[in-house]
Design a protein around this nucleic acid. Sequence first.
RNA 1: CGGAGACUAGUUCAUCGGUAGAACGCCCGCUUUGGGAGCGGGAAGUACGGGGUUCAAUUCCCCGGUCUCCGACCA
Length: 411
Amino acid sequence: MFYSKLFGKTVKTDPKDEISVNAKLLIRAGFIRKELAGVYNFLPLGLRVLTKIANIVRDEMNKAGGQEILLSALQTKNNWQKTGRWNSFDALFKVKSRYEVEYALGPTHEEVLVPLVKQLISSYKDLPLSLYQIQTKFRDEPRAKSGILRGREFLMKDLYSFHQDEEDFEKYYEVMRKTYLEVFKRCSLEAIETKAGGGTFSQFSHEYQVISEAGEDEIVYCPGGDFSENVEITEVKEGKQCELGHGSLKKVKVIEVGNIFPLKTKFSEVFDLTYKDKNGKDQLVVMGCYGIGISRLMGTIVEVHHDDKGIIWPESVAPFMVHIVGLDMDDKSVADRAEKVYKLLLAEGIETLIDDRQNLSAGEKFADCDLIGIPYRVVISKKTGEKLEVKKRSEKETSFVSLDELIKMLK
RNA sequence: CGGAGACUAGUUCAUCGGUAGAACGCCCGCUUUGGGAGCGGGAAGUACGGGGUUCAAUUCCCCGGUCUCCGACCA
């Protein structure tokens, strides 16, 4: 990608209507723009990151046996009345058509998926079943805040599992626990698996929490990793000594990036989702539900990985791997050399952004480069000669390498 | 949903009863190129919308909208 052609420019000043680090940096660096409170547009750079994250999640869900589907965002009121959530789900977006018909905009998809699954499964041979989607969700939040951490419209992965019995569900629940930790690890986030309140569904559930001052939740946890509970439910006090000798428990603010919990037969009962067991007897399907906020994950990564100059994207989710900074670009031999390196990197399958702008000071290009936060900066100028000056965004030192050496570094 | 604040150029802000100004960005020319360059010229605003007060309203008052912050809420 040529920077000069990229839709979305960097901005020097912080937007006046944003306080959160993620929104300030993502807007200034040209990844997103606000449409409404809690609603953002994603520009090319932003969409690239979102897609990278979604693909990590997709890959892990597929490994865990999930099949990807896409369910309707516009949903019939009737099913929401059946589950009683038309009135009890506070954040439900309700829309009325010009024919006075009311619909829900999906904040979650049990009301759509459970009736759908009922049409398509009937035997114990059809179970277990694991279905997921990555889709825009709508929640009529009383107060959107913190940039893309808490929106009214956001991208979410929701997976639902269907089982013959509790035992089979619990086996799968353990698979998903491991899967979730793997997803966050691949996004370079240290997620703390935390016991939380199960809401109306059960006595327990797990949340995946990332330590950050930008978070809205609080947990008490052991830095040794054997204990963590949401303050909503915990009776344990911070400062108490860990029983396994890891020292004292800490209370910290956290961002909830994922949540898994049992649904048991709550929705199976409402929609009469049953299967025939080996004896030909009807049994209720046992369900589980597993969510990850994809766009929130993107915001969380920025909250965790940045410095005073800008974003520091982990390689796994970065919009590009290499950012070529071309200096002296009005010198034809330098410009040609930069473009040649750009093309060779592309030929190697390395995603590259090249700052090909002319008549711009070096300082401005470096500042933009730091702000955008692509993992590798490669400077090409009159000074660099045949070598490439390489610097990682996360490090201070630069080194001079050949193109072959650079490609080796990146593979 | 309670409380507070804001809304003026693309962006960040100034002006504060007498029909708008800067910086950055943008366009043109020249100069410049290793940490947000210099000079000169230029384009760019129904001052959120609607009422009211006034000879006169971006400015004061009222209603509405939007955004932000604090709180409540967050299956």
